[in-house]
Simulated assay, not measured.
Amino acid sequence: MRLDDIGFAKLNLALHVRRRRADGYHDLETIFAFTELGDALSVAPAETLSLTLAGDFAGAVPPGPDNLVLRAAQALDDGQGRGAAITLEKRLPIAAGLGGGSADAAATLRLLNRLWNLDLPLGRLAEIGATLGADVAACVHSRTLRGEGRGEALAGLDDAGLAGTAVILVNPRVAVPTPAVFARWDGEDRGPLAEGDPIATAAAGRNDLEPPALTLAPVIGKVLDALSGVKGAQLVRMSGSGATCFALVASDSAAEAGAEAISSANPGWWVAATRLR
């Protein structure tokens, strides 16, 4: 028996950094959205836990015990000694602002919950995920959410206006480590994220990590310019701590045409057209 799932790519439609906390983390306000695109994971019964890596970006993934997939499996197992053969096909670039590792951990929790017949609700899986990383809880749900605190305090949003929206993702194949970006944040609180409709809220918001990320990887500015030039682009922004940027686009055909044009003009970049879930 083999079970399959997707570690859906995470987007921050808006990301406000409010303050640095005493525990070293930052208080955030964000709107999470998820795309249909992601890493592919599968699990099968086995006597011990193991992880096999494949895919275009597998070489950049740590294979040892620090891998978030194995950490998620161990957290869910909670010392019971269950086994599983886990395969991760890494399709998303790493250190890219797409929450790839977090999404993979979340998919592992969902898959092993089924394989091991634990029957835990998503809420409990999200609680376990929150112990692994700030974005893992949101990735367990993989739906449009408002996140606060470190990103783990979640509230559902009406995503009827977002689901199915065409989106272009572009990464210049430059890894931007999250700690380095936060280290360059200027510390200024530029105000809260508004409440209400997620599209309007996102459009009125910002990504406070975009300026410090640009100092580390100026090519992000070129990516944003390329996305802004796509016909039908409605919201163009960097996701998370970068370097992936996105454009919400008026139609699938416009997204596909825009992605093709950007890819042709910048053959070294990773470019994908997909839709929001």
Rank of each mutant, 00 (worst) to 15 (best):
L28D: 11
E195H: 13
L3N: 06
L115M: 09
D104Q: 00
G101T: 13
G164F: 10
L41K: 08
A9D: 08
A233P: 04
L28N: 06
A163E: 09
G24Q: 08
A153P: 00
S102F: 01
F8I: 07
R82A: 09
G229I: 09
T131F: 02
T274D: 01
L193R: 00
V170A: 15
L145A: 08
A204Q: 13
P121T: 14
P93F: 10
E256V: 00
E47C: 08
H26M: 00
A9H: 05
D56Y: 04
A105I: 07
F57E: 01
L11G: 04
I128V: 13
D186S: 13
T201K: 05
G97K: 03
W269T: 03
R184E: 11
G147F: 07
D5M: 07
A137W: 02
S228P: 04
F32G: 02
I6L: 15
A213P: 02
A254C: 13
S142T: 06
E127F: 02
A40N: 11
D158W: 12
S253Q: 15
V43A: 15
D119S: 11
G133C: 12
L145V: 10
S228R: 15
T274S: 15
A255Q: 00
G99V: 01
I86D: 00
L28E: 09
L109Y: 09
A40C: 10
K90Y: 07
L49Y: 05
L11Q: 06
L53C: 09
D225G: 08
T144W: 01
K231R: 12
L28M: 11
A73I: 13
A134K: 00
A58F: 04
G123H: 14
L157D: 01
W270Q: 07
A203C: 13
L92N: 05
L235N: 00
L28R: 11
V271Y: 11
P45K: 13
L49F: 13
P65F: 02
A254S: 13
R237S: 13
G221K: 06
L88F: 09
V170L: 08
G232T: 08
G229E: 04
A265Y: 12
D104A: 04
R114L: 07
E152A: 14
F34P: 02
P65A: 15
A126L: 05
T48N: 14
A137P: 04
T201N: 05
A54Q: 12
R21L: 15
D4L: 11
A137L: 06
R91F: 00
P62K: 10
A166L: 07
P198Y: 02
D23Y: 11
T87E: 14
P211Y: 05
S142W: 01
W116D: 00
L51K: 04
N207D: 08
K222L: 03
E36C: 05
R277L: 14
A134C: 09
A126G: 10
G64N: 14
A105P: 06
S102D: 07
L41A: 07
E47W: 05
N12S: 12
L68Y: 10
L122S: 11
P121L: 11
L216P: 06
V223C: 12
G59A: 14
P63L: 10
D23T: 11
A95F: 08
A95Q: 15
A180V: 03
S263V: 04
P172S: 12
R21F: 13
G268K: 06
N266L: 02
V249N: 01
W116G: 05
D39N: 11
C245Y: 01
A103M: 01
A103E: 03
T165C: 13
A54S: 15
A254L: 15
L3P: 08
L70D: 07
G133W: 06
A46S: 15
R173N: 15
